[in-house]
Design a protein around this nucleic acid. Structure first.
Lengths: 154, 154
DNA sequence: GATGAAAGCTTGTCCTA
DNA sequence: TAGGACAAGCTTTCATC
């Protein structure tokens, strides 16, 4: 499916203002409400728009600490079932926002959100370290968030 | 400000369904529409809710390649003005979704989104490498996204 | 926190280019 | 094939209890 310029403008606006009213969006892209809504539905059905979410403020919620965690798996001694279980657990843990299988090495990269270092330390010792197959954990901590956006350039 | 259980349920739902109707949300948390809407406004005004966004599908948009880029800055030969300019440019570049100042080393961590490796290669050579102060670029590429969410545990 | 009413939005149908 | 007009049915939203 090919996106025309109006579709692209709709997607750009919705990426910034997911709760904009159809009325107002229509005005912004120069359509009347009906065809605008029709386009939105098509974009949703075609899978371009995956989800609408509210983004919360980490500071206000008091989950300020981002930790990037690199977990090495002991491949030699870990069954694929254990890795499946690792993945299953990761998906359940609410502190873990992101998890990637990295190229090149036998490891996972996690983005973890915590209140403070003490909370993270507990999480690492009592939870992460106990996941199946884990043989090494390295952490990296951002001091400052220069940029953060969910927007994708269309 | 202290959140009660209803506030927390509202925030949890909005993090998954940012476009839910107030009517329906009110039903889910066991309130009538007016006090529910009042709470949402309070949560927005108090800064708990930062933004509503539509999340697009990377694959459908054809920006499938995530690259984590570690950029080392030549601190000895880079003025603070140059670093300011680096940060300014990073904010403008739409391929860069995230940028952090990392603890411990003189470097930045970037999350970059591209169509494919060729596009990334061009971006690195023609854009990233030319930013002020850059003296070293290392890339890491996720093979698989195991988990990705914007949700914060409340 | 609930109710009820006014204003405004959404959304479907049908018509036009 | 795509946009516009219109109208019915909802939602939102606010004052009042």
């Amino acid at each position: 499916m090919k996106l025309d310029n109006i579709d692209k403008r709709i997607l750009r606006i919705l990426q910034r203002e997911g709760n904009i009213q159809n009325n107002e969006l229509a005005k912004k892209v120069g359509l009347s409400p009906s065809p605008c809504l029709r386009r939105i539905k098509i974009l949703e059905d075609a899978g371009f728009i995956k989800q609408y979410v509210a983004l919360l403020d980490k500071k206000t919620i008091n989950k300020q600490l981002i930790v990037y965690v690199r977990i090495k798996i002991d491949i030699a001694n870990t069954s694929s079932a254990a890795i499946e279980r690792f993945i299953y657990e990761v998906k359940l843990l609410s502190q873990i926002q992101e998890c990637y299988v990295m190229a090149g090495e036998n490891d996972f990269l996690l983005r973890v959100l915590c209140t403070d270092l003490e909370e993270y330390r507990n999480f690492q010792v009592n939870t992460l370290a106990l996941l199946p197959g884990v043989c090494n954990i390295k952490t990296e901590i951002p001091l400052q968030v220069v940029k953060w956006t969910t927007e994708i350039d269309i």
